[in-house]
Design a protein around this nucleic acid. Structure first.
Lengths: 301, 301
DNA sequence: AAAAAAATGCAACAACTGTTTTACCGATGC
DNA sequence: GCATCGGTAAAACAGTTGTTGCATTTTTTT
């Protein structure tokens, strides 16, 4: 019996709700409910009239069933079934996005955003993405030098990747010189080097131009971008994709930063000893330079 | 490249079909197609008009997209997407296999890192943190001007916050001038302004000095940092904490970035209309400046 | 610079949606 | 017997759907 209850809950609260009140229903309602129980997803996928036809029931009976179960109407009922489908694959980012008009700005935004971000990063764990991350890390390891390119919104990701890598050695060169000199370091790039390009929609023209120029010089392009139809995909040797959707007006770059940190981690783990060595050296240098402190410094007068 | 094709096929023949002919599409068709690629199941779950609204496209464009891809009409298109949902749940063998592979591959560093990051962000949903985020957003809203300070590893977070905020207006000033001038803009700061300081252990001395100087000028300090015993906590009016542990040699800044994005989201939601207005203006400016593109530009000879 | 073609927005259309109302049916109670 | 009531079917309803043709803009070609 406990197993039975568990199964009910596993199938979702909608099933439970229907089964619970099944005995109170009239004959027609039961027939409708029986059909819904056996084809839950059809509720979201076809129109009510078609569903009622398949169930051998009048359309109005479906509306009555929905209201009987405590929904405001059949559309409410269908909405819940659609959510079940969404949650199974997507987390619930899409739903939160949809109701942003109804729920208004208010209290829940911070919560919804964080939940969404967590789900998005969790979805990056798909074996597909993991595999891509690993092969990209391999390529980065083999490269003689890594040119890092990310402009505008992607600057933060590019710079962070570069910064962490500088702690590990001198393998990366960040392409964001001032006064339009960003691309200049590519002058000395060879075919042993790679360009790590980061860009999201809308794609910065300058990034695309630089990447294309690099490709024509025979430099392999590795792209971190947001879509299979990103322009970078067409010219890149390897691609890692990340989501950017958020519940706000803006795109999120948190998943992108996560990707870049994972790459740093993989690169460091390919040569643990060397990485530790370099880190120690950096540490020594920075403390000699008096870069850090652990308390608010006394004011020099 | 072969691996890439395989991924396409895994996502289903519909994805492949769209990606295949993506380049031939007109601008609007591409925008619609891009949305469909990112939300395949929504095609089956919501009406065409709603989908077109979410994609930022005319209803007719969706019909045109469907026909362009060789379907008899949009309803045909939707039908195929519904079938994808149906077979995915009925024949769940593939899905189970995937999960299995993922669990078995649990050894991988990439997998562990992403799981960890997801959990850390999820932990930020605690009501405590949410409350701190909200009150900090309130203070940021009330401030006349926001000076943003984050050096070294925290540069990415500070810059990203500043960048997003520039899309919303001129409220923020980023303190990272070259040649040691980072603190100079504080010259014109008043007690109506606030300093948003971001720092993690080891704490950059320069950040602490600048923050202390600002505090002595009567500027309120808002801190985003990693610990209750961070030096910033002692001088800050309000604090938001985030975790930085990771499975690598380095600290992670992904949770920090998430926090900063949530703050941006909250600030924008405090004045939805105004934010939308500013975003439109920024959009117009950037497209006038020819900043963005959606395909690899032709080489100028 | 003019003409042709393609792409896009807009508005009207019939068909269909979910809902509500109305009318009918059969059982139950007085 | 007839009045009453819950249950069901049928029809009417307003709103929305996907589609289409047309006018306008943008791009390309001549």
């Amino acid at each position: 019996m406990a197993a039975y209850v568990r199964q009910m809950l596993q199938k979702g609260p909608l099933h439970a709700r229907i089964i619970e009140r099944f005995d109170e229903m009239s004959e027609q309602l039961q027939q409708a409910a029986r059909h819904v129980l056996e084809h839950p997803q059809e509720v979201a996928l076809v129109s009510m009239r078609e569903l009622s036809r398949n169930a051998g029931v009048q359309p109005s009976t479906m509306t009555r069933l929905a209201k009987f179960l405590g929904f405001t109407g059949y559309e409410d009922f269908r909405g819940h079934h659609a959510d079940v489908i969404r949650v199974r694959t997507d987390g619930f980012a899409a739903r939160a996005l949809q109701e942003d008009e109804g729920a208004g700005n208010g209290e829940g935004l911070a919560f919804r955003m964080l939940q969404g971000l967590s789900a998005q990063i969790s979805r990056l764990c798909e074996p597909d993405t993991i595999r891509h991350l690993n092969t990209m890390a391999d390529h980065l390891t083999k490269a003689r030098r890594i040119y890092v390119l990310g402009l505008r919104s992607c600057h933060s990701v590019a710079w962070h990747f570069h910064y962490v890598m500088t702690l590990l050695g001198e393998k990366t060169i960040h392409l964001d010189g001032p006064a339009g000199t960003s691309g200049d370091p590519l002058i000395r790039a060879t075919h042993e080097d790679v360009l790590l390009a980061i860009s999201i929609n809308p794609y910065s023209l300058q990034t695309l131009e630089l990447a294309e120029a690099a490709r024509e010089k025979g430099i392999a392009i590795l792209a971190i971008t947001d879509s299979e139809v990103s322009p970078l995909v067409t010219i890149a040797e390897h691609v890692v994709l990340f989501p950017t959707e958020s519940q706000t007006f803006f795109h999120t770059l948190t998943p992108a930063l996560a990707v870049s940190e994972v790459l740093c981690g993989l690169l460091a783990s390919h040569d643990r000893a060397g990485a530790l060595e370099e880190l120690k050296r950096a540490d020594k240098h920075l403390s000699a330079m008096n870069t850090y402190a652990t308390s608010i410094p006394r004011r020099k007068i």
